[in-house]
Computed example of a mutant assay.
Amino acid sequence: MSQTLIQPYLFFGGRCEEALEFYKQAIEAEIEMLLRFNESPESPPEGTLQPGFEEKVMHASFRVGKNRIMASDGCEASSGFAGFSLSLALPTKAEVDRAFAGLSEGGQVTMPLGKTFWSSHFGMVTDKFGIGWMVALLEEPPASFD
């Protein structure tokens, strides 16, 4: 298992392309590839694709720093993101501020940026697509949590 990877795969229920553009602006994501359902070498099985989804995103991947996130519209127009958040650690306070502000556009701040015992600059936001983000200044962890 030396080459094992766990990578997030997000389903946007018809809003994937919009989400990709949003993340390009908000957190400087770089789109690596994008394949639409109507560009696939094989058609989806009969009845699995919602009418009107032919030009939606079948598969995309994007990078944020060294990290790859994969995404799709899925096969239906609903999506829900619960039970997880993506953690984004950045090297400067200015980058944290910029990313947090970008992700907050159209979203909901659940914890404003501030000092915590684990980070001098940390905040949480749910973006306009329902993805939870924990944004923090990249720091050395404390020697202990006593």
Rank of each mutant, 00 (worst) to 15 (best):
S87A: 15
N67R: 12
Y9W: 00
M70A: 11
A101F: 06
M111K: 01
G130I: 11
F122V: 10
S104F: 07
Q50C: 12
T116E: 09
M124H: 03
E39S: 05
D146A: 12
A136K: 04
F129T: 00
F62G: 01
H59P: 00
G80E: 11
A77V: 02
Q50L: 15
G74Q: 05
Q108E: 14
Q7R: 00
C75F: 13
E18A: 04
G14I: 01
Q50H: 07
F22P: 14
A94I: 08
D97R: 02
R98I: 01
T110W: 13
G65V: 02
E30N: 06
D73H: 03
D73M: 01
P112N: 02
F11T: 11
S2D: 15
K66Q: 11
P51S: 14
E55H: 10
G106I: 10
P112V: 01
I27W: 08
D97S: 06
A94N: 08
F117V: 10
F117P: 14
L35A: 09
N38T: 08
M134S: 09
M33R: 00
F53E: 12
E95N: 03
T126E: 06
G80C: 12
F129N: 00
E21S: 04
L88V: 10
E54V: 02
Q7K: 01
T4A: 06
E32V: 00
I69H: 00
E139C: 08
E46A: 15
G132D: 05
A89I: 05
S78Q: 07
K128A: 02
H121R: 02
M124D: 09
L113F: 14
G14V: 00
I31Q: 15
N38R: 10
S79G: 03
G13F: 04
N67L: 04
S78E: 12
P142L: 14
I131Q: 02
T92I: 04
G80I: 10
A71N: 01
A143R: 08
L5Q: 13
D127V: 10
I27M: 14
F11W: 04
K128T: 05
K115Q: 13
D73T: 04
A89N: 09
A60G: 11
T92Q: 08
G74R: 01
S119N: 05
